[in-house]
């Protein structure tokens, strides 16, 4: 089939936008998958953590004239603190008592409701915009238009993910983390302080949530229910394979690409339906996801 120059240009544009979207989804999905890995439950407070962290950074740094780096840092730190708070008040006792996983679930949605409620009390239902961090809002490379925000998003996400992979695969802490996620009790017997490791996992997940929240705030706007975009991260995790970090990243990039394509073909409302349909089909055909780590419920 003959592709015209304009069509080629456009499809390239879609690929680039898709990668940018996918990189944020990857941050969300890995933050979610980390917790899933270690405590074996779906952390539904992740979305609200993103919102709360992004708003904290907005009020403390960006609204006072801080730059992108400072805002990101503040958001990541805020996310980590919020996640630590959640771990202590929501999950610590349940973990130690080996309670039924349903309590993790309720705890996580309760924490989500709490964060979102607190943000709503502070900001009402208003929309906030991050100040424009870049002198040139777009970069042009031979006819392609890339928004600077998207480019930064891609690069920073990539760096964060590589760093995460390094920590998990190559360091002592990472090894301890993997051991605890494999079998918490045995790891504890081997002298690993599993509570510390769980805390650490929440901190990492919170850092990622803060960064993702800021990026979402830059890409769209800041509003109290921004966290519901976390559902994209969930879909990415399901496509990639629940609990697998590599799967989460692959799923996220794939989802970003598909969504950008559908967006240009169908418009916003129907593309949401279509991505949902794709997830359902995926579950029917390959429920273990791309990475294929099917975590069965332990007996």
């Amino acid at each position: 089939m003959f592709l015209g120059e304009a069509t080629k240009q456009m499809s390239l544009q879609i690929v680039i936008n898709g990668l940018a979207t996918g990189s944020v989804y990857a941050l969300i999905a890995t933050g979610f998958a980390l917790i899933f890995n270690i405590l074996k439950f779906s952390n539904f407070s992740h979305g609200a953590t993103m919102t709360a962290a992004a708003f904290t950074a907005y009020f403390l740094v960006a609204a006072k004239g801080g730059g992108l780096a400072a805002t990101l840092l503040a958001a990541a730190l805020a996310g980590a603190l919020i996640a630590l708070f959640g771990e202590f008040f929501g999950f610590r006792r349940i973990t130690l008592k080996h309670s039924s996983p349903t309590y993790f679930f309720v705890s996580s949605i309760t924490l989500g409701t709490l964060y979102e409620g607190l943000v709503t009390i502070r900001v009402g239902s208003n929309f906030y915009n991050f100040p424009s961090f870049f002198k040139n809002p777009t970069i042009r490379i031979s006819g392609l238009v890339i928004s600077t925000g998207d480019a930064m998003m891609c690069i920073i996400s990539l760096v964060a993910l590589i760093l995460l992979a390094y920590v998990i695969q190559k360091t002592r802490l990472g090894r301890a983390l993997r051991a605890v996620s494999f079998d918490r009790d045995t790891a504890q017997l081997m002298g690993i302080n599993s509570t510390r490791i769980i805390q650490l996992t929440f901190v990492i997940s919170g850092l990622l949530a803060g960064a993702a929240g800021t990026f979402l705030g830059i890409k769209y706007t800041l509003y109290p229910t921004l966290g519901s975009l976390v559902v994209k991260g969930f879909i990415a995790s399901v496509i990639g394979g629940l609990g697998s970090l590599v799967g989460a990243v692959i799923g996220a990039v794939l989802l970003g690409l598909i969504e950008t394509l559908l967006l240009s073909l169908l418009g916003s409302g129907y593309s949401t339906i279509a991505t949902f349909g794709i997830m359902l089909v995926f579950l029917l055909v390959r429920p273990q996801g791309i990475a294929g780590s099917n975590i069965q419920e332990k007996a």
């Binding site: 899933f36 439950f41 779906s42 539904f44 679930f105 519901s228 559902v231 969930f234 879909i235 995790s237 399901v238 629940l242 916003s268 409302g269 129907y270 949401t272 339906i273 991505t275 949902f276 997830m279 359902l280 579950l283 029917l284 429920p287 975590i295 069965q296 419920e297």
Partner: peptide, 25 residues
């Protein structure tokens, strides 16, 4: 249909996606 045969986490994730999709629709 695709969800009940899987681990119970899936039903919450999938229904959450479903809710967002219905709202968009």
């Amino acid at each position: 249909y695709p969800v009940v045969r899987l681990r119970r986490d899936y039903i919450s994730l999938v229904t959450l996606g479903f809710g967002e999709a219905i709202a968009a629709l």
